[in-house]
Simulated assay, not measured.
Amino acid sequence: MAANSYLVETTTTGGVRPRERREFWSEHVTSYHCELDYRYRQSTDFTGGTIRQCSDTYQIVQFWSDEITYARTPGLVRRHPDEDYRFLLPLKGGLVVRQDGNQAELLPGAGSLITLDAPFELLHGSDTRAFIMTIPADEVNGPLNRTSSLAAGLDMSKGLGRVAADMMRGLFEERDTLSAPQFDAVCARLVELLCMLVVGDDRPDVPGHLAEVEAMVRRYVRRHAADPELNGASMARELGWSLRQVQLALHHAGTTPRELIREERLRLVRERLLHPGYRHMTITELAYASGFSSASALSTAFRRRFGMSPREFRREAAGEPAERRRALTG
């Protein structure tokens, strides 16, 4: 597909001769997922269909068919790796997902996040209709701090789960009116909600996900505070989160990326003003070496935070007599 493209297509077995439908279906599903084993219940005829919408980044498919089992065997995983995740959301009937020795039976109102980079089985009956969404691996591995498979059922009937499910239905219903940037923007928000749901962050008494993000962000900012290019977007990119997730986590802690970066830079300047090894540096040099754009920007922020200028703080820290400081400052 061309760059920044968006595609909507409908495919069914209706125009295929009955004896060729199973082969057609296998090739069709493989073409937009990966190599799978297909175990058909019927020995001859088979019916099924898909409505697929996709961009260069995300893909959502609504599918329905006769009874079938899809499988990724260890051999297929080795020969045809696929690191991306899939989110399953049944709309009618049910799905059974088996992976890592776990089994999840999904009915409408439940969902599951899995990877095709580990052996699994997915089976359903002829009355099933469901969504399957393809999500880039780094959008799950980073936020969830994992590279392993998932097969847990997620409650999509209330709270954050219902919001996410409604977003997916909305994407499908508006599929013919969306542009590629619009589709990607909503999908990105949907993935954030799913990651929060996986770690239970939809419950106000379990802020584990946001707390984890906040801790990682604070460590990163402390290590890179002196970088003049540091901002919310750059730290989110380096940590593998979205900017929105970083903002949410810091908002939960009562701050913002800009405020946190400024506070860490002020802390760094304060420590250097106290350290004998930095006495040879001017205030201007300290400002640039600590990530500030100018000495005036540092002085303004420092006075607001500590009630005095960096120069006054240095003199006080050095034990300079108050009379001498007043004479020098006029």
Rank of each mutant, 00 (worst) to 15 (best):
E173Q: 09
E312P: 00
T30L: 05
D56N: 15
R303V: 07
G125A: 14
R86Q: 13
G170M: 04
E229Q: 13
T69M: 13
H28D: 02
G200D: 05
D176W: 09
L230N: 05
G93P: 08
L266I: 05
A130M: 11
G159P: 03
R189E: 14
G111S: 08
S290N: 08
D202G: 15
H280M: 04
G277F: 00
R222D: 10
H209S: 10
G232W: 03
R267C: 08
R52I: 14
Y58E: 04
A327C: 04
R272E: 01
I60R: 12
M196P: 00
S157E: 09
S148M: 11
Q62A: 10
T11V: 15
R219G: 09
F24T: 02
V77L: 03
R262H: 02
L193I: 01
R189D: 14
A71W: 00
Q99C: 12
V77W: 10
D155L: 01
E238I: 04
A151E: 13
F313V: 01
R98D: 10
S296M: 11
R314E: 13
L91K: 13
G208S: 11
D138C: 09
R17Y: 07
T50F: 02
D202Y: 12
V163R: 08
R203P: 00
S242E: 12
G14H: 13
D201G: 13
R169T: 08
E259D: 14
P81M: 06
L298T: 09
R304V: 12
E9R: 15
Y70E: 08
Q247M: 07
E35C: 05
L88V: 03
F302H: 06
L113M: 07
H252G: 00
N145A: 14
E316I: 01
W25H: 08
E264F: 01
T44H: 14
L171G: 04
R129W: 00
Q182L: 02
S296Q: 13
H280E: 12
G48N: 07
L91M: 11
Q59I: 00
H124Q: 05
L178H: 05
R79G: 03
T30C: 06
V186Y: 04
L123K: 09
L89F: 14
E312T: 13
P207V: 04
